[in-house]
């Protein structure tokens, strides 16, 4: 069963295809580490990223967003599924099963930016050493040439090249995140995975960082996987948005569609929960009861059914597949066609 996500008209062929990706962590117990079950951190996720586009990934904590990103980089070896990177030279490469040489090559084209700008930089290295490291390791530039490239990268992310001899502790959170972005861009990647790049930053610094990321994207034709739990930020930066719930993607759609006409009750619940900066629109939340289930022991059927205001008996024992509900919009709900769900501006 192959999901065709390419129904949206795109001029290019995809850059990255995540196909039926799974990462199950064993839950062990006792002295002998007996496996008693699995945390299905990522459970059969398929997503596609196109060149120059941003795929936003939202979901509450523990839904598997970070695990997904690290599986794409193969910092985590997936349990099953494939991650096809369409490389200019090598053609399609399955990152999940690539040999070391191919993996090295693909990793130059895929880089990652982490959530915490304070742990992302080695405190004992200068900014120059930090950004030049990928250049040296991949034998792209050394010495003077590397230094010039670092200066260029610093300028690109809006920092002054004179800063390159400083240590990370001399920078604020926002500046550090710029350094992290500069390091990620050092190898001229095609795809950057951004794991909550602004959630540790102040509001005023967040806007600067988002503008920078968008600007770099259009100048360098970058593709982004933008992970966040801030729905406002994801809406602002994404072309397409995927919503995860307990390891599964419940809805993928072009941004405007997802926010205005969601097709999954969980998406609707999320949209209604956002505290909106508009005092005239007070209190019209869809009260969804309960808490996010424990991913080691999720409810059967549709994981969302115990909290879903529209749940029917079938939801408790049959997991709905992700299917195309309207052109380009995919949802995993038995009743997507019948339900008339509210968009973000209807609350």
């Amino acid at each position: 069963m192959e999901i065709q996500l390419n129904a949206v008209p795109h001029a290019d062929r995809p850059l990255l295809e995540i196909l039926h990706l799974k990462k199950h962590y064993p839950v062990t117990r006792g002295l002998l580490k007996r496996t008693v079950g699995y945390v299905k951190a990522v459970d059969d996720v398929s997503l596609t990223i196109y060149p120059g586009q941003t795929l936003g990934l939202v979901g509450e904590s523990g839904s598997g967003k970070t695990t997904l990103a690290h599986s794409v980089m193969r910092g985590i070896t997936p349990t099953a599924g494939s991650v096809i990177f369409h490389d200019d030279h090598l053609g399609p490469v399955d990152v999940a099963s690539a040999d070391p040489a191919a993996l090295r090559h693909v990793r130059r084209n895929m880089q990652m930016v982490f959530q915490d700008p304070f742990s992302s930089l080695n405190p004992r290295m200068t900014v120059l050493d930090i950004i030049a490291e990928p250049l040296q390791v991949n034998q792209i530039a050394k010495g003077k040439a590397a230094q010039e490239r670092v200066a260029e990268l610093l300028q690109l992310v809006g920092l002054r090249p004179e800063y390159m001899r400083r240590f990370p502790h001399a920078f604020s959170g926002g500046q550090r995140q710029r350094i992290v972005v500069a390091r990620a861009l050092a190898l001229n990647p095609r795809l950057v995975l951004l794991d909550e790049p602004t959630s540790a930053l102040d509001v005023s610094i967040q806007a600067q960082t988002l503008n920078l990321l968008k600007d770099l994207q259009s100048r360098l034709n970058l593709s982004y996987l933008f992970i966040s739990h801030d729905l406002g930020v994801v809406e602002h930066v994404s072309d397409t948005v995927a919503v995860m719930y307990v390891g599964r993607v419940v809805e993928v759609a072009p941004t405007r569609k997802l926010y205005q006409q969601p097709k999954h009750p969980y998406t609707e619940a999320l949209l209604s929960s956002i505290p909106k900066p508009d005092p005239t629109r007070k209190k019209r939340r869809i009260a969804i009861a309960g808490e996010i289930p424990n991913p080691a022991n999720p409810p059967p059927g549709c994981h969302f059914h115990p909290r879903c205001p529209y749940a029917q008996p079938i939801c408790a024992h049959e997991a709905p597949p992700l299917r195309e509900v309207t052109p380009g919009q995919f949802a995993a709900c038995h009743f997507s066609d019948e339900l008339n769900l509210k968009g973000v501006n209807d609350f």
């Binding site: 005023s204 610094i205 806007a207 503008n211 729905l231 809406e235 602002h236 926010y259 956002i274 501006n345």
Partner: peptide, 24 residues
């Protein structure tokens, strides 16, 4: 500036966000 620098959910636009320069 603070009010303008947050992306307003439900009002997507393609332009850049207003920012406050520098840092605290």
């Amino acid at each position: 500036a603070l009010l303008e620098s947050i992306p307003k959910v439900g009002h997507k636009h393609d332009g850049p966000l207003q920012t406050i320069e520098g840092m605290v």
